[in-house]
Amino acid sequence: MNVETTQPVITVNNLVTYYGDQKILDDVSLTVNAGEIMVIMGGSGSGKSTLLRYLLGLHSIDGGEICLFGKDISRLSTREWMEMRKKIGVSFQGGALFNSMNVGENVRMPLREHTQLDENTMKIMSRMKLEVVNLAGYEHLMPAQLSGGMVKRAALARAIVMDPSILFFDEPSAGLDPVVAADLDNLILRIREAMKVSIVVVTHELDSAFKIADRITVLDRGRILMVGTVDEVRHSDNPRIRNLLTRTSEDEPVDADEYLQRLTEGAMRN
């Protein structure tokens, strides 16, 4: 996979975040170049979804900086952020389609809110995007009437309707069968080629990550273990990455009685 340019569209420098007293992300630094697919990979609780939420500006950072298109997002005014957000599209884990609207209305919503286009033009544009994700003809269905894969594709159509420069995916394959997940991976690759868009994918699905990634960032317990190409990650001899790749638990097996006793002691302390 060729990265077309090396100009960074996302730069994260020494990002530190806390939840209460607990450090969630610790000194995280990475860059995503224009036209690149960066996969952020890690086990449950590694902080990858949290990192995505900070990249999207949904929380305020506690240290470091996040730059999108060279601008530090923590210094943007509300209006500048609104403009910046027109350049990014997001496909959430559960789709996050608006349940009170049908598929067509969901896809048209960013157009309705941010453009002065007439209704017919918006309908044509939303239909084009739904064709890209193979959902043309399903405009009239409500989100509750869609399968899991269709929800993700409809969410993707909404994410690309404003022709963004960066696309974010949160666990795109989660909850999908392998065939549908593979279709979605192909769709992500097709969209990158067609729209020349930079893509950040958060996932714990190894097959998916290796198939679509130009580079992979491996997160573990809030810290970056490595950033590298697919081959570099595959052949890493870092034991924690090996555990992740071979799906081996690093925790010692715990006796059930001992576990219950620990829980009881913890409850009594609190």
């Binding site: 949904l58 609104m82 959430f92």
Partner: peptide, 22 residues
């Protein structure tokens, strides 16, 4: 509340739509 839990509020924010305004 349902929109909050289904990440619809987050979706509004990242689309550049103020949830308060909307």
């Amino acid at each position: 509340g349902t929109m909050q839990m289904a990440q619809e509020i987050d979706a509004l924010r990242v689309m550049g739509i103020s949830p308060v305004r909307y």
